[in-house]
């Protein structure tokens, strides 16, 4: 009986390890994909030269600080918050997989930067790429 139970426990542990490997491979593939974004709609940009679109969710603990950080670091830009759970079609069109995901749009609505996660936004705010205002 002990042996049979031991086999079941080993199978469960093996299944956990396998699921972990598959999950990591899936996440790595997602990160490698370069999504082709549509234009950010004018209803979000409202004619601004630069628009930060912060995709949030009701369960996102770091989205508020991310939004505040963008407002503080780039006061000349428009910052809009989009709840991905309330705007699922918009979120899907920009391949939003997690919150916060932040897009930077130029005056024509082209996405010029895509930041996934609070850490990425923090890194960007501290060291914006040359040629990008902020």
């Amino acid at each position: 009986m002990f042996m049979a139970r031991g086999v079941i426990v080993i199978v469960i542990l093996f299944a956990i390890a396998l699921a972990g490997r598959l999950y990591r491979a899936w996440r790595a593939r997602l990160q490698d994909e370069k999504p082709i974004h549509p234009l950010v709609p004018d209803s979000l940009r409202a004619g601004a030269d630069r628009t930060w679109v912060v995709f949030t969710s009701p369960y996102c603990a770091t989205c508020g600080p991310v939004e505040a950080s963008l407002r503080a670091s780039d006061p000349g830009a428009r910052v809009v918050k989009v709840d991905a759970t309330r705007e699922p079609h918009l979120a899907e069109s920009f391949s939003i997989r997690s919150a916060p995901t932040v897009l930077l749009a130029d005056v024509e609505g082209n996405v010029t930067a895509r930041l996934v996660g609070a850490q990425a936004v923090d890194d960007y705010v501290r060291r914006p790429p040359s040629g990008v205002a902020g």
Partner: peptide, 21 residues
């Protein structure tokens, strides 16, 4: 692995009926 199935269920429910946040 960080894959929390119960959390994902919560998120699905939250998307169907957005919670305050």
């Amino acid at each position: 692995t960080g894959i929390c199935v119960g959390c994902e269920i919560y998120l699905v429910l939250a998307r169907r009926r957005p919670v305050a946040g």
